[in-house]
Nucleic acid binder design. Structure first.
Lengths: 342, 342
DNA sequence: CTGAAAGCGCTTACAG
DNA sequence: CTGAAAGCGCTTACAG
C-alpha cells in the first residue's frame, strides 16, 4: 500500500490534522513544523490521494470538457485541438484537471454530463458547442451547475456565461468586404443550422445583403445537408444557374477547400471566375491553392477565456452572467478578386 | 445536500450494504429487494457519488490520456481529434472516463503523470507519443503502472504494450512506390528525430534506398529543424543542387502542403517537375492541389486498439507485453508522376 | 499553533 | 440473501 497521511504523521510525531494542514500550506502552522513534516513527506515519498482529499473537501479540482458528438467533431477538426490547448493553458496554471466527454450521440453526451454533475466528477463544465434547444444545456441551467459555453447560447443569453466570436458581425464584415470588391451576387454555403454559430453567420450574411438593399435569395444559399449529400452537384447547380454568384462565402475553410476542388472540376477558376472567402482560418489555408482568404476566429483565446469565466463562476456561483466576445481578424490572401478594376 | 446511499437505505428499509449491492447488481441480492431499492433510488433521484465509490473500491474508472507538449500538438493537428475519437469509442463502451494531460512542457507533463499515478486519478495511461528516452515512460515502467503507447517505444519493446503502424515498412513501401515509378533521386523531409515515429520512417527510407544499392545522401535529407527555421530556403537549396531529387517524401501531409507552396514559388511544378508523397493522409489531402498521394495510417484504429490493450493490461497486470501493428493504406492521388513513360 | 473526533459517501470481507 | 462494522485517505470545525 501507498504511504498515507497517517504514516507521515506517526513518523513526524504530529497528528494527521497537522500533516493535512501542511499539505494545504495552512498559515497557522509554524514554519518549523512545516519544515519537519515536509522532510518526512519527502523521505517517505508521500503523495496525497486526490480521491480522498476531494471526497473530504467536496471538490474535484477538475473541469469537464464536453464536445459535440464525434460526427461534428471530425468536421471541425482543427477547432478541437486548438480550443483544448487554450483550455489546458488556463487549467494547468490553476492546477485543474480536464475530464473529457466520450459520448458519440446527443443522448450519450447528456447522460455523461449528468454523471459528471451528479457523480461529483467535476467542479464545472465547458460546453464546446451551442446547439438549438440543447437538452444538456437546459439540464445544466436547471441544476444551477457552473458551466460556460464556447459559443452563444440559443436562449437565456443573459443568464449563461459564454465566450464567442461575434459571428453575425464577422459574417457581415465578410460580405462587406466582398461588396467592397464589387461583388453583388454573393452565395452562402452554410453550416448545420442546429448550431448557433451557423445560424448567426447566416443571419449576418442576410443582414449585410439587406443593408445594401440586396435581397436574400434561396438559390444563393446551400444548406449543409445538401452540400454533404452531394457537394459537387450542389455547386454545379449553384454555378450554372441564370446569374451565377461572383463570390462564395463558406462557413468553414474545409468546406471552402472542397468547393474549390469542385469548381476546378467544373473548370471554374478561383479567384478569376469566382471569389471565395471563408471562416476559421485553418493552419493549412495559407498553403492551399489559391491561398484562402479567411476569418481567423482565435480559437485558442476562445478556450482560454471560457476556462477563465468558468473558474470565476465556480468561485462566485451567484455572480451575474458574463459574456465575452473574442476578436477576429480577416486574413486576406488570394482567393478573392476585385471586380472594380475590371 | 444530495441524497446518499443511507437515505435510500432508510427509505427502502434495508441496510446501506444492500443498497450498495443493488447498485453493483450483485447476484446474491433477491430480485424483489433489487426492485424495491431501485424504485426508491428512482423516486429519490439518487445518484452514486463516484469519488466515494472509487475511494472505497480503490479504482477510478478513468484512464489518463497524455499528449506530447502543445507545440508538437499544434503540429500534428488532425492526429489528436482522431485518436481521441478512437480512444473515446472504447472508453465510452466500457463506461470509462477520460482524463487529459494539460502540461505544456516535458517536465510539466511528467509531473502531471506522477500526479495521475500517485494521486490515484486514473487506472491506466495512454501515451500519445513515443520519444527517445522519455522520462515519463521510464517512470511508468518503473512504477509498473498500467500504460500503453500509441507509437513504438524507443526501448524495452518486449516489456511495454504498444500500438503502432509499421513505420519502417511504410516508409520503405513509399520509397518502393517511387522507385517503381522510375525515381532514383529521392529526398526525405523528416520529422523531429526525438520521436520514434520519425526515426523509424527515416530508417525505412534508408533501408529502401540500400536495398536498391542506392546510397543515402546527406544532401537529400532535410532535418525538421532546418525546415522549420526556413523551409523555403531549405527547399530552394535542395532543388537547386547539382542533381536535384525527382521525388520528395515528406513526413507529414501538412509539411507536404508547405513544400508544395515553396516549390510553386520556385516555379517547380508538382508532379510534372518533382513528385511528392507523404504520410498521415489528412482529411484535406484530397482537396489540395495537386491532390496528395499519402499513406493513411488509420489513426482512429490506433486509438481504439491502444485503449483495448490498456484495458486488458489493467485487468491482468501480469500478462505479457503485447504489440499491435495497425494496417495502413497508400492512397494514390495525383502528386506523383511516373518517369517510366517519359 | 496543534490535536481528537467526526465526517465525506461509498465498498466489502465477515458473519449469520 | 442481508446486515453491522470497519475502512478507503483525507479535511475541518471545535476546542484548547
Amino acid at each position: 500500500m501507498a504511504v498515507t497521511i497517517i504514516d507521515v504523521a506517526r513518523e513526524a510525531n504530529v497528528s494527521p490534522s497537522t500533516v493535512s494542514r501542511v499539505i494545504a500550506d495552512h498559515p497557522r502552522i509554524s514554519e518549523k513544523t512545516k519544515k519537519k513534516v515536509r522532510e518526512v513527506m519527502e523521505s517517505m515519498h508521500y503523495y496525497p490521494n486526490f480521491q480522498a482529499r476531494n471526497l473530504a473537501a467536496r471538490t474535484t479540482q477538475t473541469i469537464g470538457v464536453v464536445m459535440a458528438n464525434s460526427a461534428t467533431l471530425a468536421f471541425q477538426n482543427p477547432f478541437f485541438p486548438e480550443v483544448i490547448r487554450g483550455i489546458s493553458t488556463t487549467a494547468h496554471a490553476c492546477k485543474l484537471g480536464l475530464y473529457l466527454s466520450t459520448g458519440g450521440t446527443e443522448e450519450e453526451i447528456f447522460q455523461e454530463v449528468v454523471a459528471m454533475v451528479q457523480g461529483r466528477k467535476v467542479d464545472g463544465i465547458i460546453l464546446l458547442y451551442s446547439r438549438l434547444d440543447d437538452k444538456t444545456l437546459n439540464y445544466l441551467r436547471e441544476m444551477q451547475f457552473p458551466f460556460t459555453i464556447v459559443g452563444r447560447p440559443y436562449a437565456f443569453e443573459d443568464q449563461v456565461d459564454f465566450v464567442d466570436n461575434d459571428n453575425k458581425k464577422i459574417a457581415q464584415d465578410v460580405v462587406e468586404y466582398l461588396f467592397g470588391l464589387g461583388h453583388r451576387e454573393i452565395a452562402f454555403i452554410g453550416g448545420d443550422l442546429e448550431f448557433v454559430v451557423s445560424s448567426d453567420r447566416l443571419e449576418g450574411y442576410r443582414a449585410a445583403l439587406e443593408s445594401h438593399a440586396l435581397k436574400y435569395q434561396e438559390q444563393y444559399f446551400i444548406h449543409d445537408f445538401a452540400f454533404e449529400q452531394d457537394g459537387k452537384e450542389a455547386i454545379r447547380q449553384l454555378m450554372t444557374q441564370q446569374s451565377p454568384p461572383t463570390a462564395l462565402v463558406a462557413h468553414d475553410d474545409s468546406v471552402a477547400y472542397e468547393i474549390i476542388r469542385y469548381l476546378e472540376q467544373l473548370e471554374i477558376r478561383v479567384p478569376e471566375d469566382v471569389s471565395i472567402i471563408s471562416f476559421n482560418n485553418h493552419a493549412l489555408s495559407e498553403h492551399v491553392k489559391p491561398p484562402l482568404t479567411s476569418v481567423d476566429i482565435n480559437i485558442f483565446e476562445l478556450g482560454l477565456k471560457a476556462t477563465e469565466l468558468l473558474l470565476e463562476r465556480i468561485k462566485q456561483p451567484e455572480r451575474e452572467a458574463t459574456h465575452q466576445y473574442v476578436d477576429t481578424t480577416l486574413i486576406v490572401r488570394n482567393s478573392c478578386q476585385s471586380l472594380n478594376t475590371r
